[in-house]
């Protein structure tokens, strides 16, 4: 386990909110860095933040509970459609729309979690794909609600807090998304260190053992799935509000698979891993696809192979190991 995710370490710090502060500072730093690197492409960064929330959401069920899923985009997409429709229907206040996304995500998460966590292993994986495909098919067919293959457009939320209008350079969208991400990330940092979070990690390791300490496994997994849905719902809501359209891609199998790749890349079972996996993958993809539009997928594939070979437990773990090696050498000298 990496230093950042280990429960034991944080307790020994004198400052009680060290981890939370670290979360805020890191996200602010990433935001500034992103702004400096891509000042003309804030729309890309805004999209990146929405997807990052989905990766964090996936980490909760896959990384912390060991649930294998390839249908996680369903939670994101359903919320995005719900927020889109709410906005078109007259609810234009951004904070309220976030709430709509959270509610839609929580409900979708609870329902799909109730189905998926009944099973283990391959049946679980197949069921998650089936749920994802079902939602994708519905999104395509129910064109009166989703706009079908044309997508749902005309989503124009009010200014944030009544002050900041969503502008064409995506400045407001970017800052708003970044702040929301920071809030969610800090809440999650606390959540995964809670007794409930610890129990989920125990269930992931051995669910019979968890029962043998008196824990009801299934309800816990469904609750975690609902929380995961809420986080995915925030991502979906941001995506709908800031892009102004919701397309079929938001519920697609490719989206589900891609976020799983990002999570594994960064390191599952660790929020920092999810964060960095998402950021690194998407920036790499963005740069490579712009410089080499023909072979970019090949390069992304090569990157993944390299990471699996050299840091099989994810980037965050690889970096932590490297860091401790350097640190130890420095200490001896």
């Amino acid at each position: 386990m990496t230093g950042l995710s280990t429960l034991a370490k944080t307790s020994d710090r004198a400052f009680p909110f060290a981890a939370e502060l670290m979360g805020i500072v890191s996200i602010a730093a990433l935001g500034v860095l992103g702004f400096l690197l891509f000042p003309d492409d804030l729309a890309f960064l805004t999209r990146l933040i929405g997807i990052t929330l989905l990766v964090l959401s996936l980490d909760l069920v896959t990384g912390y509970c060991g649930v294998a899923t390839l249908g996680h985009a369903a939670l994101f997409g359903v919320s995005a459609y719900a927020v889109g429709n709410a906005c078109i229907g007259g609810i234009r206040e951004p904070i309220l729309l976030l709430g709509v996304g959270i509610v839609a995500g929580t409900i979708t998460g609870a329902i799909s979690g109730a189905l998926i966590t009944r099973f283990r292993g391959l049946p679980q994986l197949v069921l998650s794909i089936a749920i994802g495909q079902l939602v994708a098919a519905l999104a395509n067919k129910l064109s009166s609600v989703t706009g079908g293959s044309d997508g749902l457009s005309g989503i124009t939320p009010d200014p944030v807090l009544g002050l900041f209008r969503f502008d064409m350079y995506s400045r407001t969208a970017f800052v708003f998304s970044l702040v929301v991400l920071a809030v969610v990330f800090v809440l999650l940092l606390r959540f995964v260190r809670s007794p409930f979070g610890l129990l989920c990690r125990g269930i992931r390791d051995d669910d019979l053992r968890a029962q043998m300490i008196g824990a009801m496994v299934y309800p816990r997994l469904v609750i975690m799935y609902a929380v995961s849905g809420a986080v995915a719902g925030v991502g979906g809501a941001l995506n709908a509000m800031t892009a102004g359209v919701v397309g079929l891609d938001s519920v697609s199998f490719e989206r589900s698979a891609e976020v799983l790749v990002m999570l594994v890349l960064g390191g599952a079972g660790n929020l920092w891993g999810a964060l960095f996996g998402s950021v690194v993958f998407q920036i790499f993809e963005h740069i490579v696809s712009a410089t080499n539009p023909f072979h970019w997928m090949t390069l992304v594939g090569l990157l993944l192979i390299a990471i699996v070979l050299f840091a099989p437990r994810g980037l965050s773990h690889g970096v932590a190991v490297l860091w401790s090696k350097i640190f130890r050498r420095g200490g001896r000298a």
Binding site: P195, F196, L198, L199
Partner: peptide, 21 residues
């Protein structure tokens, strides 16, 4: 600690840090 917290019904807590008990 997990066994103790489960026995005491603390695993329903979502936002208190497990090590701060």
């Amino acid at each position: 600690a997990l066994a103790i917290m489960q026995r005491k019904g603390l695993t329903r807590r979502f936002f208190s840090v497990a090590t701060d008990m």
